[in-house]
């Protein structure tokens, strides 16, 4: 197949895997400033599958769509450095507090704005929530079939794509017509490194929000090289109903957040001395825990 149009859904997330002691504030809320913002790992797997399709199908274009604050344009640049063609940041204060249902509503509207397309592809889940809901919910809102937990794209034939899925107890190979939504499992190939050529080309790509924070004059540059514009879309741009966004559009509410406090048990402290270890093993043997 030649010239597919692929939309990659990606999210910039706090790196919850490397949480330090300063990650929580004294009041029990998350100190986002202390956590580095990264490209959600499985979205990178999704980008890689999209890039592989592009490698094998000249003329394919990859558009990255992300929803978040203005600085989320960082991950669009990261995607461009690896071979994505362009990207959009869906950003608006009215999105704040959106749960997966409201988020998928907004993303689905943005995807529709980019239609026609062949494939919408995203990571299975984001590490700040681990819900794995947004991909299937976007698919439902678009009225499209979904293939979740993709590990490998096996082939294209006419308008049909064949994909290997990673399930908890094995693998499954399925074929589906396009357009469709695919979510990608972490067992899929890792994303390639930045490409020097693209890094130079897109180094100065900026969104409007980012331009406001810089004294450099990008406007002329962007006029001369339109590919350096990272477009931002607001609620109005995607034609969303505000009632279906943010807190009002989110059926799930957080009733309570507890900072993690470990309930103490009666505990015995041992050293690594031979005596301590031998006593412990004897005790475990005596009370039939082992042996």
């Amino acid at each position: 197949m030649k010239g597919l149009k692929i939309i990659v859904l990606a999210k910039q997330v706090p790196d919850t895997r490397n949480v330090g002691r300063d990650a929580m504030k004294a009041d029990g809320t998350v100190n986002r400033a202390a956590l580095p913002a990264i490209f959600n790992p499985e979205d990178l797997n999704a980008l890689e599958l999209a890039l592989r399709i592009k490698d094998n199908n000249p003329g394919t274009t990859i558009t990255v769509l992300t929803m978040g604050p203005g600085r989320a344009a960082e991950i669009i640049r990261e995607a461009m450095y690896r071979g994505a063609d362009k990207g959009y940041v869906i950003t608006d204060r009215k999105f704040a507090g959106s749960d997966t249902l409201a988020t998928s509503y907004a993303l689905a509207l943005a995807v529709k704005k980019l239609a026609p397309f062949h494939i919408v592809i995203a990571g299975r889940q984001a590490i700040d929530g681990d819900t794995a809901q947004v991909g299937p919910q976007v698919a439902e809102k678009l009225g499209l079939p979904q293939i979740t937990y993709a590990e490998e794209i096996l082939s294209f034939r006419k308008e049909e794509i064949t994909v290997k899925r990673r399930l908890e107890r094995g693998v499954e190979t399925v074929s589906a017509p396009m357009p469709l939504v695919i979510t990608v499992h972490s067992s899929a190939p890792e994303c390639r490194a930045r490409h020097a050529k693209y890094t130079i080309k897109y180094k100065r790509a900026r969104s409007l929000s980012e331009l406001q924070d810089t004294s450099e004059d990008y406007l002329q540059l962007q006029k001369d090289r339109p590919y350096l514009v990272i477009q931002e879309w607001s609620v109005d741009d995607i034609g969303a109903d505000v009632e279906q966004l943010g807190l009002s559009g989110s059926p799930t509410k957080v009733r309570k957040i507890e900072n993690v406090v470990f309930a103490g048990r009666e505990s015995r402290l041992l050293s690594s001395s031979d005596d301590d270890i031998e006593d412990l093993m004897k005790e475990l043997i005596t009370n039939h825990t082992v042996g």
């Binding site: 048990r265 041992l270 050293s271 690594s272 270890i277």
Partner: peptide
């Protein structure tokens, strides 16, 4: 934090402690 729910906490280097656990399990 795990120490707070542990019944036994052994403080030290696991590369030293685990071989000792094996040794004293077998011995006893």
């Amino acid at each position: 934090p795990i120490n707070q729910i542990a019944d036994y906490t052994i403080i030290g280097d696991l590369t030293e402690i685990i071989p000792k656990m094996i040794k004293y399990y077998q011995k006893n």
